[in-house]
């Protein structure tokens, strides 16, 4: 019993802390300037990694699908596979993993360093609540920017996939394009955006928590950073499975 309690205590602490964050979002005035700055840092500065990921995933997906489908004379379905995969799965998941790596690490390292150099204590003595001042803008910024990054990544992935189809199919690429428009529904795209919203929230809250509760010294910061990236990524991959099942049930027409 005691061991069980020890195992679950950190999870309980995390949940209580997350509750504080939500209370702060609802009950306290947000500093819009801080939010915009974080959106710039988290969103705009992540564009290049997310776009490159999207483009190359779209291209490799188109090539691979074409190689397989060509054998069974289904070339014209290539782009439909690319677009649905990009919208519902690869777009949000890969963007999520890239943002977890870039932003999650940066958030945990920044907040962790502030903690070990007593800057967070200093903030508290200056009558500022660290959750209001540091966590909320960062959390909201990841929640807002993740769907935007994902949407752009999906668009770029599909465009790159279309480019590959032009190379392999030549003028027949327009058939593939028609099929893509026919088989891809708004619900596929919506699935991707909702997933991205969740992933943004997970990356934000896990990374900020890891930074704010970081242990002493350089080792503590290093560990917090690693854990932020690992836990965010694992959470994204596991929750993706469940989100796929739930969203499919909710959004797909019977």
């Amino acid at each position: 019993m005691e061991r069980l309690r020890e195992r679950f205590e950190p999870l309980g602490a995390f949940v209580l802390w997350s509750k504080e964050v939500f209370v702060s979002i609802v009950a306290h005035r947000l500093n819009v300037r801080d939010l915009l700055y974080q959106m710039y840092f988290i969103g705009v500065k992540s564009q290049s990694v997310v776009f490159i990921t999207g483009a190359f995933t779209g291209m490799v997906l188109a090539a691979q699908t074409y190689f397989q489908f060509h054998r069974v004379r289904m070339d014209h379905a290539t782009l439909a596979v690319v677009s649905i995969s990009m919208c519902a799965e690869l777009g949000p998941v890969l963007a999520g993993l890239m943002v977890a790596g870039r932003v999650g690490a940066a958030l945990a390292a920044e907040l962790g360093t502030m903690r070990v150099t007593e800057q967070i204590d200093a903030l508290r003595t200056l009558a500022a609540h660290p959750i209001d001042y540091l966590v909320v803008p960062r959390f909201l910024a990841t929640v807002i920017t993740m769907p935007l990054l994902t949407a752009a990544s999906i668009a770029i992935g599909i465009a790159a996939g279309y480019g590959m189809c032009r190379i392999y199919l030549g003028t027949f690429a327009s058939y593939a394009y028609d099929n893509m428009v026919k088989y891809t529904g708004a619900e596929d795209f919506l699935t991707g955006l909702i997933k991205a919203l969740f992933y943004g929230g997970m990356i934000g809250i896990i990374s900020c928590y890891k930074g704010m509760t970081c242990r002493e010294g350089a080792e503590g910061v290093g560990r917090a950073t690693t854990e932020a990236v690992v836990y965010s990524s694992i959470t994204i991959l596991i929750s993706n499975f469940f989100l796929t099942l739930v969203l499919n049930k909710l959004l797909q027409p019977a």
Binding site: E118, D121, R124, T125, A128, H129
Partner: peptide, 23 residues
């Protein structure tokens, strides 16, 4: 709670060992 303390802390100023300036 941390929120109630914010009001009390307004009476205090604190100088940290490392100064703890926001870098």
């Amino acid at each position: 709670s941390e929120r109630q303390l914010l009001r009390v802390r307004r009476k205090f100023g604190m100088l940290f060992q490392s100064a703890a300036l926001f870098d």
